[in-house]
Simulated assay, not measured.
Amino acid sequence: MSDRLPFGDDPRTEILRRTQAALIDAFGRIVRPIDKRRSPEWVLVHGVIGARSKTAVSNASTDALLSTYGSWEAVARAPVAELSDRLARQTFPEQSARRLKACLEQVVALRGSVDLRHLSNLPTAEAMVWLEALPGVGRKIAAGVMNTSGFARSVMVIDSHHRRIMQRMGFVPAKADTARAYDALMPLLPPEWHAADMDEHHLLLKKLGQTFCRPREPRCKNCPVRADCATGQRKPSSPYQPLSGRR
């Protein structure tokens, strides 16, 4: 995994540009204001507790933890049962509590406190490797810390909506996990895209996944990116079928 892999003249890069334009036309701009970029530590906690939970719920839970305990080090010292109660609104509160405590304890063990500022001095790929070594942290969370926090690095956050759409469009192997999807997509991104563009692309695809490209019964007929989608270009009369053999 490198900061940015070499770019060539892959036609899929132009498709991604067209996809971005089509989604902006369909949904409008979805730009994260600079003042909404949180600290990398906050984004880490948000990611670790956020499995299968709505973003607004995880936002509130993360803010409440810091407000209640006063520091992430105090959160790390809290008993799992207590954290589980504090995370009652999360989809998996006990699992979230165990993962969060393990993750923050590991950061404290490595750095002396819950402080990720040292990552700003590392190349993005090295920073993500460091993050992914923490308990409960995978590629999505690591990319989120590097892209959506104040670090604002040019990496793509890929959630289940994003991966599903890229699989249906034919960009990513059907059985690829998040890490493999990331490795497949990063070399194809337009070289002019910076952190904010990648963040907006992710948010637009999430919106597409919630509206048209749903997990079951996707609404291909009126999808704004159907013209560039391998699934959408199948015969209109044919029912949707997963791209189970596509590589």
Results as ranks from 00 to 15, higher is better:
V108Y: 00
L87M: 07
T55C: 08
H46E: 06
T62M: 05
A76G: 13
V80M: 05
G138R: 01
V145F: 11
A22Q: 10
P93K: 08
Q90S: 11
V107M: 13
V31W: 03
I49E: 01
R117V: 11
W42Q: 04
P11G: 05
K140L: 07
T68C: 10
I24M: 04
E105P: 00
P40Y: 02
V57C: 06
G112T: 04
A60Y: 13
A88N: 03
R99S: 13
V43M: 08
Q20V: 03
A102V: 01
V114T: 06
E126V: 04
P123H: 12
P40F: 01
S84W: 00
A88K: 14
A125S: 14
A51T: 09
N147T: 07
S39N: 03
M146K: 07
T62A: 15
F92W: 14
D35L: 09
L87G: 01
D85F: 10
G70T: 04
A81H: 10
V80N: 02
S71E: 02
K36V: 04
S58W: 02
P40W: 01
N147K: 12
L66Q: 12
T13H: 05
P79T: 05
S39H: 07
G50F: 00
S61Y: 01
R139T: 15
V75T: 06
R98V: 13
P79W: 10
Q95V: 10
Q106S: 15
L23M: 08
P93Q: 09
A143T: 05
A125G: 06
